Computed example of a mutant assay.
Amino acid sequence: MAESALNLRERRRQKTLRRLTDVARRLTGDRGFTGFTVEELCEEAGVSRRTFFNYFAAKEDAVLGFPVRRDDDAIDAAFVTGGADRPPGGVSTTLLDDMLAFFIARWGRLSLTASEAKRVFAIIDQEPRLHTRILQLLREGEQTTIALVERREDLAPGDIRASTLVHVVGTLNRIVAEEYLATHGDAPPSLDDFADRLRERAAIVRALFA
């Protein structure tokens, strides 16, 4: 019963999250980002202002689809506790593979189709304020991931190995995501296909640097 209630709450949360994002993007497309208020967005979506801020920190985040709570704790924990066979002063032998699995798991939580991605990119291109915000959010996410690597590997803050890993795999992730969305149209995201593409790129990097 408890698990069923939890699943129901999560479905409702996802439905509200999706509705707020859809309305925010529609209003931005129709009126421009400054052409509507949070109150008007809430009225269109049928939620209270308080509910809105339980889901998003700002109007920009609703348009971009970056909620306050991302529910990535399990993914983060699996990565942090996965380190093994770490030589003194070195890093885990599975670190790269586990970092790839981390990004793949994050992708698996998305449901973005190519048409939705194009719509968001078009809005960002028209609204410099959104471009600035997404860069900020991406930098924050990058720093959070670097901190996870440092924590997992017992590295000192600022150890260049952690940032290098995140920058390299993060760049591969972005390239594969763009390629994937360009070739899949409106088909539902395929986690296996995305994972194969990302691991293929990583294998090339391994061979080049071997």
Rank of each mutant, 00 (worst) to 15 (best):
L96E: 09
E127M: 07
L135H: 12
D22Q: 12
A147I: 01
P189Q: 15
G83K: 08
D98C: 06
A74M: 10
L191M: 12
F52V: 04
N54A: 11
K59R: 14
F66R: 11
T113F: 00
F121I: 07
E140P: 00
M99N: 03
D159S: 08
A105Y: 07
N7T: 11
F194M: 02
M1V: 11
L41P: 06
M99P: 00
S115P: 13
I160T: 07
G89I: 13
D73T: 06
I104G: 02
A210S: 14
L6T: 15
S48A: 06
G65W: 01
A147H: 07
T171H: 03
D30K: 06
F194H: 09
V120T: 15
A207K: 15
D196V: 06
L17C: 08
G90N: 05
L137A: 12
I123N: 07
D73V: 05
T51K: 11
L95Y: 02
D154S: 14
R26M: 13
S4F: 10
G141D: 10
R119H: 02
L8T: 10
A74Y: 08
M1H: 14
A74G: 06
H167I: 00
Q143R: 12
L165D: 04
L41V: 09
I104A: 13
V63I: 15
Q126H: 13
R49F: 05
T113N: 00
V168K: 05
A24T: 09
D192K: 03
T37V: 04
V47E: 09
T144S: 09
L165T: 02
N173S: 10
L155R: 06
A84W: 05
A117I: 00
K59C: 01
T51Y: 08
I160G: 00
R12N: 12
Q143Y: 02
A45C: 05
R106M: 13
F79Y: 12
T144R: 14
R50F: 05
V63Q: 11
E142R: 11
A58F: 07
N173L: 01
P157D: 06
D97A: 13
G158C: 13
